[in-house]
Design a protein around this nucleic acid. Structure first.
Length: 504
RNA sequence: GGCGCCAUAGCCAAGUGGUAAGGCAAAGGUCUGCAAAACCUUCAUUCCCCGGUUCGAAUCCGGGUGGCGCCUCCA
């Protein structure tokens, strides 16, 4: 409930480290101060994709949220070990493979590559470890054996089940009433469970299914056990942060806890982070409704960083609604940011303004940003402080309030450095401004069917007219282009153009 | 039925006990040959409703109303 007081050193000065990062722990349903098991180091495990299809924008939101968590922890000086698994052995993969005629491993490997392309396009960091189930059968079998030996699991006709009644802490994460759970559960035909709540650790292979040898006969792991096995291998039996989307709380994460803590006798993950769902303007996105939006399709219409901005503009635990309007807003905002950066870079790049004081208090924006991020990774709040930062850059560039050019230059330089730090945390502004702006214009040109050659020709006519002071003719060109959706901009460096925003 | 979340301006969205961030849209202004961009100003006496606690509540408590999620594979 209460924050740990800031530690004091013998001189009575507060320590600068560790940073006071607070995060909402699903286990306690409260924000807690992050105190890693090993000071200065954080182990993070995020449930990765089941590789049987393309990932959708909901997956993308989750992975972007944790991408920023990892980036921020690193920014704060913590040594992060980041693990995100691939579930490449699974019923859905077997089913998908049967439909395409591929071998399940082949199909899974193909979608691993597709996933990597998609996540790279979204500027997601590559985790330090991306373990696959198919590479960890020995570890998985070992932990199942341990559970059987300790009496927490039992074999039954080639299957192995976890005995939920053997774990008195079961459901502590999802806070469910076990009696209530029993009502909805049903023993499926062919399953050899003792009790309805028991879940499979190992599934005996049916003819033709991929199978690995085990003490219980040929088969494959159940869904939940892989995370228990692989997290322990890469992060240890106890580690700091385990993340995923809300729907994984039950049963997946609950079952991971049951498995790991029953097998190891120690606390599994110390902090549980879950991010909210994304919907389509209020409608649930689901395969049955056939309205799933693939990340890769979304990225043909929206800039990757604009999509990240859209995700990050809402708190990670809150629901988020995907819409054309919201995406357009995000792109408009990104264009503002990049226009500003282009101007600032033009002004300061390659110049040395010497050492000395700065104008005003330019550091305050980044301080605000960090305060917001310290408070449960409040990216939406942090993004708000960027308005002041970019506003000040524009002011200093376009109408500096002081004459001292070195002072202005130094201040701009400091602000630009803060943008770089924000960039490393949010994965925004990673492109060269000119390149980003040009790319956006090209996409708009394609979408609106604008004839670039004609635009350039008309622009030439207008430049000639302006040189001859024939402003009536110049304005005729301006309105003609405006009707085609092209906005002309006269700058000190010459005339450029952009695609005007659509009305309404 | 069980567990949990949410309700802030036309729209999006922070803030969770000290007197309403930010963005989009809109209006006016500065700048400009005219524009665009940028900058400035305006835009919620008020945070779904009703009670309560408090010197003080959008923030806490109780009761409504309206959305939503999970409880089965689901990010």
């Amino acid at each position: 409930m209460r924050d740990t007081p800031t530690p004091m050193d013998p001189r009575g000065l507060p320590h600068v480290t560790p940073p006071a990062i607070r995060l909402f722990n699903t286990m306690t349903m409260q924000k807690e101060l992050l105190q890693p098991a090993i000071p200065g180091e954080v182990g993070v495990y995020v449930c990765g994709p089941t590789v049987y299809s393309y990932i959708h924008i909901g997956n993308a939101r989750t992975f972007t949220s944790f991408d920023v968590v990892v980036r921020y922890l690193r920014h704060r000086g913590l040594k992060v070990r980041y693990v995100r698994n691939f579930t490449d052995v699974d019923d859905k993969i077997i089913k998908a493979a049967a439909e395409t005629g591929e071998a399940p491993v082949e199909l899974a490997a193909r979608y691993v590559e597709i996933f990597r392309e998609d996540t790279r396009a979204l500027h997601l960091l590559e985790p330090d470890f991306s373990p696959r189930v198919s590479d960890h059968l020995p570890e998985i079998i070992a932990i199942i054996q341990k559970l059987v030996d300790k009496g927490h699991a039992y074999a039954s006709q080639g299957d192995v089940y976890f005995s939920v009644s053997s774990d008195e802490d079961y459901a502590k994460l999802s806070k469910r009433n076990l009696d209530e759970l029993c009502v909805g559960e049903r023993v499926q035909p062919g399953e050899q469970k003792r009790e309805p709540l028991d879940f499979a650790l190992w599934k005996a292979a049916k003819p033709g299914e991929p199978a690995w040898e085990s003490p219980w006969g040929p088969g494959r792991p159940g869904w939940h056990i892989e995370c228990s096995a692989m997290s322990a291998k890469y992060l240890g039996e106890t580690f700091d942060i385990h993340g995923g989307a809300l729907d994984l709380i039950f049963p997946h994460h609950e079952n991971e806890i049951a498995q790991s803590e029953s097998a190891n006798g120690v606390t599994f993950a110390r902090y549980w982070m879950h991010c909210g769902f994304l919907d389509l303007e209020g409608a649930k996105m689901s395969k049955s409704l056939g309205n799933v939006v693939r990340l890769r399709d979304a990225l043909t219409k929206v800039d990757p960083e604009a999509l990240r901005f859209f995700f990050l503009a809402t708190h990670y635990r809150h629901p988020l609604s995907f819409s054309d309007k919201a995406l357009a807003d995000a792109e408009t905002r990104m264009e503002y940011f990049y226009e500003t950066l282009r101007k600032v870079d033009e002004r300061i790049s390659g110049k040395d303004f010497g050492k000395g004081p700065l104008h005003g208090d330019p550091q305050r924006f980044f301080t605000e940003f960090e305060s917001a991020m310290d408070d449960d990774f409040n990216t939406a709040g942090g993004l708000g402080s960027l308005s002041g930062l970019f506003g000040m850059m524009n002011e200093l560039t376009d109408k500096p309030p002081v004459k001292d050019k070195a002072l202005v230059g130094r201040t701009l330089h400091a602000l630009r450095e803060d943008v770089r730090r924000v960039s490393s945390v949010l994965g925004l502004f990673e492109d060269a401004p000119d390149a980003w702006l040009l790319r956006r214009r090209e996409r708009a040109v394609r979408e609106r069917g604008i004839d670039v050659a004609e635009v350039e020709r008309l622009l030439g006519e207008r430049t000639a007219a302006r040189a001859a002071k024939d402003f009536a003719a110049a304005d005729r060109v301006r309105s003609e282009l405006k009707e085609k959706g092209v906005e002309i901009m006269d700058t000190p460096a010459g005339t450029t153009w952009k695609v005007a925003p659509l009305q309404g």
